[in-house]
């Protein structure tokens, strides 16, 4: 009995604290032949199935790009839709290989949760949407205004913090359901609506009678760097996911698109040659084919293309690039050199 108990204890310890060997996730991905990617259960523009049930969105494109880098085929992804509560555990337990699901990068998630964030693929932040008739120029002019907000989210807490910090009085109208909150705002029950900037833009473009009558105020009262995450313990896999996204920004910086990528392989620019694998050797460090970035750009596109298609003006969300523009155009997207 004693022997049995100690054996059980050993097994249990092994089960909960199994040290992840280097390359474990990557090896499993290669053996399986697909990337298992945790996505949103349905967030238009970021991760949602289209009318035919095929996944699409800015976050989904990261999954597809990783599959393109590893297998040369962006279709080799298995999507696991996750609720907000499940998402971190699903990554910790190994149910998914990477998490690309509208997740804010925070310190505690990076440290205590056993995750590693690879790169921010969308800079979001909480803001205010108002009717132009209200005549306010900034969020601090909202003193005394009623604000529609969804209950039980950090959005509500941020709103209270903002009001306290700026010594203004805001009257929150809390509504359980996000769609209902948006409808309440559009029908005039509140002076302003607060949520993440991307969501406000979506309401403005799709739910208002005339989008030009509405304006999103310039202030952002919270920072929401939405990022892709992997599990700790496999540095090689971390690198692959990190550089997959860097390649998408680098491609945009260098003007390489899915349409011209074949012509660009003849480019004399050494940066482009390295990116597209014309100069051999860049894939070796990642453990993937030299054509890794070529495959990403060919099949998924560069970051700008992905943005326009999913959330930009070519989509239903009609978001401006804003912070998500390249650094050369006043945004925050800055590719680390591929060399």
């Amino acid at each position: 009995m004693k022997y049995f108990l100690s054996a059980a204890a050993v097994c249990l310890t092994a089960a909960v604290s199994l040290p992840a060997q280097a390359g474990q996730t990557f090896d499993a991905v290669k053996a399986r032949g697909t990337v298992t990617c945790g996505v949103h259960t349905g967030l238009g523009g970021f991760g949602a199935p289209d009318a035919k049930g095929e996944w699409a969105g800015l976050d989904v494109d990261v999954c597809r790009a990783v599959a393109a880098a590893v297998f040369g085929d962006a279709k080799k992804v298995r999507y696991v839709p996750l609720s907000a509560q499940q998402r971190l555990t699903a990554l910790q337990s190994g149910e998914i290989d990477l998490l690309s699901r509208n997740t804010t990068w925070t310190m505690s998630r990076d440290t205590a949760s056993g995750l590693l964030f690879t790169a921010v693929n969308f800079y979001d932040g909480q803001g205010f949407l108002v009717n132009k008739k209200l005549g306010v120029k900034g969020a601090k002019d909202l003193n005394g205004a009623t604000v529609c907000v969804q209950t039980g989210t950090t959005t509500e807490l941020n709103l209270a913090d903002f009001a306290r910090a700026n010594k203004i009085e805001l009257k929150p109208v809390t509504i359980e359901n996000f769609e209902e909150a948006a409808n309440a705002f559009v029908s005039g029950r509140c002076d302003a609506m607060t949520s993440d900037g991307s969501q406000l833009a979506a309401i403005r473009a799709n739910q208002t009678p005339n989008p030009d009558d509405y304006v999103i105020l310039p202030e952002r009262i919270s920072k929401e760097p939405l990022a892709t995450a992997v599990r700790q313990g496999d540095d090689q896999w971390f690198n692959i996911v990190k550089w997959t996204f860097q390649a998408m920004i680098e491609a945009e910086e260098r003007g390489v698109t899915s349409a011209n990528v074949d012509d660009m392989t003849k480019s004399s620019d050494p940066n482009v040659q390295r990116l597209l694998g014309v100069t051999a050797g860049m894939g070796k460090g990642l453990g993937v084919d030299d054509k890794w970035a070529y495959n990403i750009i060919k099949q998924v596109g560069n970051y700008g293309e992905s943005f326009e298609r999913n959330v930009g003006h070519g989509s239903k969300l009609k978001l401006d690039r804003g912070l998500n523009a390249l650094w050369t155009r006043g945004g925050m997207m800055y590719a680390i050199p591929v060399r």
Binding site: L43, G44, A48, N177, E179
Partner: peptide
Amino acid sequence: SDPQWRAFY
């Protein structure tokens, strides 16, 4: 989740 149709929940 389709932003165009979201109002008709």
